[in-house]
């Protein structure tokens, strides 16, 4: 099977050509070694990082930006968002603080992406 896809691991967006058969998976067009890994995963079990904000009190702003420590299955994004939207914190928070461990058993944590 032959497939063209755009690598979205980073903003460069390499145009990948994937040739797969039962025992081989050949990727061309990538500029780094993450391209082939992405292509294989995207075609089998796609995942995405999530970034959002949560409520924070006693800070210069009302919202604290957060990110997932890794990627979550694409199909679970909306469910993870529901969990994120339940969170609320009081300043001070440090960039990198773990705010919620192992969200919905994905093995991924919710962490603060700035100090406030």
């Amino acid at each position: 099977m032959k497939k063209s896809m755009i690598c979205i691991v980073c903003p460069i967006g390499c145009h990948l050509e994937v040739e797969s058969s039962s025992d081989e998976f050949v990727v061309t067009g990538n500029q780094c070694k993450r391209g082939p890994v992405y292509a294989q995963k995207e075609l089998t079990s796609p995942t995405r990082p999530i970034t959002s904000t949560v409520k924070i009190e006693n800070a210069i702003y009302n919202r604290l930006p957060i990110k997932t420590s890794g990627e979550v299955p694409k199909a679970k994004i909306m469910d993870v968002m529901k969990e994120i939207n339940k969170l609320s914190f009081k300043a001070p928070i440090k960039c990198g603080d773990v705010l919620l461990k192992n969200v919905l058993n994905t093995g991924v944590d919710i962490i603060a992406s700035r100090s406030l």
Binding site: C10, P11, I12, T51, K67, C95, S113
Partner: peptide, 19 residues
């Protein structure tokens, strides 16, 4: 810009805008 995709060239890792 709270999404990620920043810093791949400068820090060799993917950061959010605030980070």
């Amino acid at each position: 810009c709270i999404h990620n995709g920043f810093g791949l060239k400068v820090f060799k890792e993917e950061l959010t805008g605030p980070e």
